[in-house]
C-alpha cells in the first residue's frame, strides 16, 4: 500500500463507556498526513477522550483506532473478537504518536533537558550524547535552549508547556496530539505556546488538537470537527465551521465567542447572523 494513501490515524466506529455512561459512540475520523485537525465542542462532549483513545491512554471498547494502518491496543482473536494487546506491542504501534498535555505533566525531579531526553534514552534506547543533541535541538525549536538546566518548578506555565512540546517533538513523531495545550495557562502566557504550535503547522507537522482558542483553531486548522455528547456532529474547513456555521448546534456553541469577538474588535467580521 502506498504510504501516503494510508491515513496517519484512522478511527472507525469508536465507542467508549465509563461505567454505564456512554461518553463516545460511532466516531469515524481520519487524520491525513500533514493535516491539522481541531476538535471543538462543549465540556464533556468527548473531545479529550477521542484524543486519548488515539494513543490508547484511554482503552476504547467499541470500534477501532489504527495508527498508519496498524490496530492500536488490541489484536483480533481467531473468532474476530478484540483481545488486549501486550504492553510492548501497544508501545510499538503508538510510537509515531506523541502527546502534549493540558497540565504539561513534566517530571519535576528532572531538568528541562532531562525531561526531553528521557523518552529518547529510555524508550528509544539512544546513547546519551545523541539523545542530548536531539533534546537540545528540540528545546531550541521551542525557544527553551537557554533554560535546559532548569527544573519545571522554576519555569513559568508557558515555559513548562514549551518543554512539554519539546519532549513530544524530540522523538521525531509523525503526529502530535495536543490536549488543550493552553487551557492551564495564564492569559499572558498563551501566545508563546500558540506561536510554537503555529510554527509546527507551518512546518507540516500532523496535529490533532483539542482547544477552546477559537480564533487560533480557525487560523491553523485544515479541518475542524465539532463534537457533542460523545458524537461527531459536524466537520469542515474553519470557514464552514467557525465563520459560516450551517449547523444549529455549532452556531449555538460559538455564539458566546462571536459576541465576545465582536465586542472587542470585529474580528470574525464575515460571520453570518442566524437567519
Amino acid at each position: 500500500m502506498n504510504d501516503t494513501a494510508v491515513p496517519m490515524i484512522s478511527v472507525r466506529g469508536l465507542g467508549k463507556s465509563f461505567g454505564g455512561h456512554r461518553v463516545l459512540q460511532g466516531i469515524d475520523l481520519d487524520v491525513r498526513r500533514g493535516e491539522v485537525l481541531t476538535l471543538i465542542g462543549p465540556s464533556g462532549s468527548g473531545k479529550t477522550t477521542v484524543l486519548r483513545c488515539m494513543n490508547f491512554l484511554e482503552a476504547y471498547d467499541e470500534g477501532e483506532v489504527r495508527i498508519r494502518g496498524a490496530l492500536l491496543g488490541y489484536r483480533r482473536g481467531p473468532d474476530g473478537r478484540l483481545l488486549p494487546e501486550s504492553e510492548r506491542i501497544v508501545a510499538e504501534v503508538r510510537e509515531p504518536v506523541a502527546m502534549v498535555f493540558q497540565q504539561f505533566n513534566l517530571w519535576p525531579h528532572m531538568t528541562a533537558l532531562g525531561n526531553v531526553m528521557a523518552p529518547l534514552t529510555l524508550a528509544k534506547r539512544m546513547p546519551p550524547e545523541r539523545a542530548q543533541k536531539l533534546a537540545m535541538a528540540a528545546l531550541a525549536r521551542v525557544g527553551m535552549a537557554d533554560r535546559a538546566g532548569q527544573r519545571p518548578g522554576s519555569l513559568s506555565g508557558g515555559q513548562q508547556q514549551r518543554v512539554g512540546i519539546a519532549r513530544a517533538l524530540a522523538a521525531s513523531p509523525e503526529v502530535l496530539l495536543l490536549d488543550e495545550p493552553t487551557s492551564a495557562l495564564d492569559p499572558e502566557l498563551v501566545d508563546e505556546v500558540l506561536e510554537v504550535i503555529k510554527s509546527l503547522s507551518r512546518d507540516g507537522m500532523t496535529m490533532v488538537m483539542v482547544t477552546h482558542e477559537m480564533s487560533f483553531a480557525a487560523e491553523v486548522s485544515d479541518r475542524i470537527v465539532f463534537m457533542e455528547r460523545g458524537r461527531l456532529v459536524a466537520q469542515g474547513t474553519p470557514d464552514s465551521i467557525v465563520y459560516r456555521p450551517q449547523n444549529e448546534r455549532v452556531r449555538a456553541f460559538l455564539q458566546p465567542w462571536v459576541r465576545r469577538s465582536l465586542a472587542g474588535r470585529a474580528e470574525p467580521a464575515s460571520i453570518n447572523p442566524a437567519p
Partner: peptide, 14 residues
C-alpha cells in the same frame, strides 16, 4: 500525579 505516569507511558517508557 497520574498525569506524570501517563506522559511517561505516552512517551513509550515501560
Amino acid at each position: 500525579p497520574a498525569g506524570q505516569i501517563e506522559a511517561a507511558r505516552a512517551a513509550g517508557l515501560s
